[in-house]
Structures are given as structure tokens and as C-alpha cells.
Amino acid sequence: MSEEKNFHKKPETRPEFPKRAVITGGMPYGNKTLHFGHIGGVFVFADVYARFLRDRIGEDNVIFVSGTDCYGSPIAESYRRKCAEEGFTGSIKDFVAANHQAQKQTLDDYDISLNLFGASGLGRTAEIHNQVSDRFIRRLYENGHLTRIATSQFYDAKAGAFLNGRQVVGKCPVEGCNSEKGYADECDLGHQYMPEMLINPKSTLTGETPIMKKVTNWYFNLTEQNELLNQYVAEIRTQKNVRPLVSKTIGEFLKPPVIYIKNEFLEQYEACKDQMPEHEFIEEPKKPSFTIAFKKLTDCDQACVVLAEQGIRYRTGKTLVPFRLTGNVEWGVPAPQLEGEEPLTIWV
């Protein structure tokens, strides 16, 4: 009887609704049309929620938006293949525009009640996207969060072209990662590293081993945000609605930069250790490798160069690295010229 009474008991509080709401659906890449999995897996849920809120707070107070993501390595690679394998003669913008229109038509056919389905590289939404991106980059620069860094980028001498993020594949260099799909500076499991660290890189254009050429880009000083991120991890670790895996994964990258070297190279390491910046030698009992730890990422990078010159195989540990914001590909959001550099693009 008591259970029946509890079942019919009125809730102590009524649900609260926002006065206004913006609902976003995931942006599909502009390299393909949509299938039912895209609709059912992303847009149906968002559409139901948008319709529910419109019923509760009024249609004028709810905006449901999404759009085509026009930039990125998968799009550039799909366009290249369409030209090479299917004889497509249009520009990459034509390729993306056709997919955008097909995506929009599919969403209309399924009666998804979007207020706006734009495209980051087309029409008025592209103009706004470019303006916001420009303002965002300039604000970071004004606040001292950006640095110009010259790094090596993969170049396919046979194809005569720089390779974008998905046009080079190798083995991830991060310790403990077994991914065989390491791309230019990030593997398919999300581990980031500098391009020259990729193990056994191959060009997807020709199958050749690419060479490295120097390019200069703008990087966000992510390594300087260690303290802020540690505070954030400590905060979310206590929140019941955040899975422990989240704080654990972020925390793994907040450790000092280290290099793991197999014990078989100990003698070669001893011979060249004085050529490296100051570091700590850490012996790993019962493990096949030893560790050398550094206070700064730049010191770790210099040590990697020394080890590579000596033919010593190594793997780097998980740590924060500068986050690249610009690139030298033509199809992308125009980056602001902050110090008179050559025109660059942003992938956002």
C-alpha cells in the first residue's frame, strides 16, 4: 500500500525550462551525402528536443541549427580521389556545395525542423564564420597566447605536394598506444605529437616515404595552460555527472614530458646524454625500457633530435604540446596576417 502511495505521489518540484534555447545538431563533413544512420543517430534526437521546447516555451524562443562542415583533411582527400578516380572536374568548393545541397535535401525529406542548415565555407554563413574566426585568432594573439613555430611538414617529392593531416599514415609514437593509424600530428585514438615523431610514415598519394620540409604556423601555447587544466581536472573529478575516464584521460597529458628508451640502447644513451638538455634518468625495474624526464617540452624535443641522430629508437610520453591553429592549405578559413607572414588558413 505504501509503495502504491509513493507511486502516485506528486513530485516536489516541477521541471524548469529556459526562456530561450539554441539547439545544435552535429555538423556532417562536406565530403559525403547523408544516410539514415546520420539522421537517426544525430538529428532525430535533436529534432525531438527542439519540437518539445517549442511546445513549452514558444517557437520564437527556440533556434535549431546545424550545417555542413566544409573544411578538413577528409574533405580534401575525398575531393582528390573523386578527381583522380571519377574524373570530377569542378573545384573543391563545387564538390562541397553539391554535398551540402544533398545533405540539406535529405534533412528536408525527413522533415527535420531546422531553423538553419548553413555551411562553414559557403554563402552568408561562411562570411560570419570567417569574421568570428578572425576575431578569435586576433584575441588570442593580443593576449599573448599564440607563438609562431617553424616545424617540419610532410612533403611527397614524387607528387610534388605537401601532405595534409590524412594524407600521411604511420604508427603513433606515443608510449602505450598501439594505433597503426597515426596521421600527421594526431592518431585515430586522439594522441597528439609533433609530425617528425610519427613512426614509419607513408604518403597515401604515392605510397612513398615523405620527406620533411620546414613550414611556419601559429600555435596556441597549450603547454602554458597546465596549471589551469590541473584545476579543471580536480574540479570535474568531484562531479558525479562526469565519468572518471574524462578526468583520467586529461590528467594523463598533464605530466612532464618524458622519453622512453629500450634498455638495449642504454650504452648508446650514456655516450650521448651530455649532448641533451638537463634531464632526469629514471630506471624502470623489470621493464624493457628506461625513462628520461624533462622540465620543458622544448628540452624534450632537442633530446629527440639527438637520439634520432644517434640512431636510438625511442617513444615519447603523453604530455601537452603546442596546438597548431593554422596551416598552408588553400581550402580553409583565411587566417589573419598578424606579423606580415605569408597567407595561411585555419581549419575550424
Rank of each mutant, 00 (worst) to 15 (best):
E86M: 12
E283H: 13
G170Q: 11
E309V: 14
R14P: 09
K9I: 10
V329R: 11
P277S: 12
N99W: 15
G176D: 11
E341Q: 07
E267V: 15
N328S: 06
Q239G: 07
L228M: 05
V305G: 12
L114R: 00
P336R: 00
I75P: 06
V132R: 03
H35M: 07
E309H: 15
Q105N: 02
E85R: 13
P15E: 05
L205A: 03
K273C: 08
L122W: 10
V306M: 07
G58K: 14
G317Q: 11
E12Y: 14
I282R: 10
K286L: 13
L122C: 07
Q302C: 11
F294W: 14
P257T: 00
T238P: 10
N328I: 08
G87H: 09
E283F: 11
L198V: 03
A76V: 03
I75D: 02
K240T: 13
T249F: 06
P244T: 02
T249S: 04
K318I: 11
I346G: 10
D111Y: 08
G160Y: 10
A97R: 07
G207P: 03
Q225F: 12
P11A: 09
K295T: 11
H129P: 11
E342T: 04
E86T: 13
P74E: 00
Y260M: 01
Q101E: 09
T326A: 13
Y71N: 01
H145V: 00
Y79D: 02
V329S: 09
C300G: 10
P173G: 00
G118M: 02
P343H: 04
V321N: 02
V44Q: 14
R243C: 06
A84V: 15
G144I: 00
L189E: 10
R54Y: 09
I39T: 06
G87D: 04
Y29E: 01
S2Y: 11
H279A: 06
D109R: 06
N328F: 08
E175R: 05
N263S: 01
I199P: 02
P285A: 07
E16I: 13
A150N: 08
Q105H: 03
H38G: 08
W347G: 04
T345C: 05
I137K: 01
L53E: 10
G25P: 14
R81S: 04
K240I: 11
I250H: 07
V242R: 01
L254F: 04
N99C: 11
N130P: 10
G90E: 07
T204C: 00
N200A: 02
Y71E: 01
F117S: 02
I261F: 07
S113G: 00
A50S: 15
Y232A: 02
F88D: 11
V168G: 10
R54L: 05
Q231R: 15
I112F: 08
D134M: 04
R135C: 02
F52P: 03
Q167E: 13
C172W: 06
L198A: 03
P201F: 00
G72Q: 01
I137R: 01
H8Q: 04
E270P: 13
Y29A: 05
P256F: 08
A293K: 14
C272F: 11
Q239K: 15
L338C: 02
Q131I: 05
L114P: 00
K240N: 10
I23P: 01
A293F: 12
Y110H: 03
Q103F: 12
Y219C: 11
H100S: 01
T216F: 04
A119S: 09
E186D: 06
I261W: 05
N130S: 05
G90N: 07
K248E: 03
Q337S: 14
D111W: 08
L245W: 09
A293E: 14
